[in-house]
Simulated assay, not measured.
Amino acid sequence: MKTVLMLTNFSETSRKAITSYLKIHSQLKSDSKFGLLNVYSAPKTGQSQLLKIDDILEQYSLQDLKREKQQIDKVAGLDKLDIDLISGKGDLVKVINQLNEKRPIDLIVLGSKGSNILKQLILGSNTDKVVRLSKCPVLVIPENIDFKKPKKIVFATDLKDCRFKKHFERLANIIRFFSAELLILNVYKETKPDGQLFEEMMNIHLKDIPHSFYYIQNNDAANGISSFLVENQADMLALIERPGNLLVKMFHHSVTNQLALSAEMPLLVFHS
């Protein structure tokens, strides 16, 4: 991965996610470029006052970014790590997408308060906005877990994801980076789908990666995925988010009935 963008609001949650990711990254051979992004909002006021306030808020943001980097370096034990400090104003997703246009971002890393990431995606949050609207792969790390190098990553799919071949390449690159095994899962309700073409395409992208395909029957996709994650001792769940908010559609019923993912683990999302 060439460019990794880490999001911070200077909270303990974001700091823990960033430091845990950097500790793992430092153990792997990579020449990645890192960016640490903080986005601030300016209050509504007159034009002349707004310019002055913008300058002040930007200075505060950059000062806080410098202090945050010092804390991250100290906790992660990476004193010489080169991290670009980026201060942005306005809408978080808009700033991210503008940065992505200037230099393609291979991965966004952000922390999630609490263990139930999917519930936050449904209720709405900055996590939700970044996952749904940014054009880059997003790794969401819940604050209640000790993030470690993943050995098994589950990619849950309805087999319609074959239209998004570029995401398979990105997924494959991330799997290679972590030297992980990929478990490709389809949960169906009644009739097992014909996955031959999908498997053939995946085999092309994953020819050098240990991977396997699984089809399980369950009327509730979330329950099926949750059970599979636990039974196979998975370390991360990967999904492709498509128009119409697939995550919300897939997990809404289970979350509202307190049947959401029982396994607390990072979520890797690719946006179509």
Results as ranks from 00 to 15, higher is better:
Phe10Thr: 15
Asp158Pro: 07
Gln27Ile: 13
Thr127Glu: 04
Phe251Ile: 11
Val255Leu: 12
Glu101Asn: 10
Lys89Cys: 10
Tyr21Gly: 01
Ile24Gly: 02
Ala263Lys: 15
Asn116Glu: 05
Leu99Ser: 01
Gln63Ala: 08
Ala42Glu: 09
Ala76Thr: 03
Ala222Val: 13
His25Lys: 09
Thr127Ser: 08
Val93Phe: 05
Ile122Gly: 05
Ala260Pro: 08
Tyr188Cys: 00
Arg163Val: 14
Glu12Arg: 12
Val255Met: 10
Leu7Lys: 12
Gln258Thr: 15
Ala42His: 09
Met265Tyr: 10
Ala42Phe: 08
Asp194Leu: 02
Arg163Ile: 13
Val109Pro: 06
Ser227Pro: 01
Lys23Phe: 12
Ile24Gln: 04
Tyr60Arg: 03
Leu110Phe: 06
Lys166Pro: 10
Ala76Gly: 03
Arg67Ile: 09
Glu190Gly: 01
Leu81Met: 12
Gly244Glu: 09
Lys152Val: 15
Glu169Ile: 14
Glu169Cys: 04
Leu50Cys: 02
Tyr214Lys: 08
Phe155Gly: 04
Leu121Val: 13
Asn100Ile: 10
Ile240Trp: 05
Leu229Ala: 03
Ile24Asp: 02
Asn144Tyr: 06
Leu259Ser: 14
Asp106Gly: 04
Ser226Lys: 00
Leu197Arg: 04
Pro104Cys: 09
Arg170Thr: 07
Ala238Ser: 11
Ile96Lys: 05
Leu237Phe: 05
Phe34Trp: 15
Leu267Glu: 05
Lys94Asp: 14
Leu237His: 03
His211Trp: 08
Thr256Tyr: 13
Thr19Gln: 01
Ile86Pro: 07
Phe198Val: 02
Gly46Asp: 10
Leu268Lys: 08
Ser48Glu: 08
Lys166Leu: 14
Leu171Cys: 03
Ser48Ala: 06
Ile175Met: 00
Lys192Asp: 05
Ala234Tyr: 01
Thr19Gly: 00
Arg163Pro: 04
Leu259Ile: 14
Ile72Trp: 01
Pro243Gln: 11
Ser48Tyr: 07
Leu268Pro: 11
Lys189Tyr: 06
Glu143Val: 09
Asp82Leu: 07
His25Cys: 11
Glu199Gln: 06
Lys160Asn: 12
Lys94Tyr: 11
Thr8Asn: 09
Thr13Gly: 05
Asp84Leu: 07
Val39Met: 12
Ala76Trp: 04
Met1Pro: 15
Lys119Tyr: 09
His205Ile: 03
Thr157Cys: 04
Asn173Cys: 05
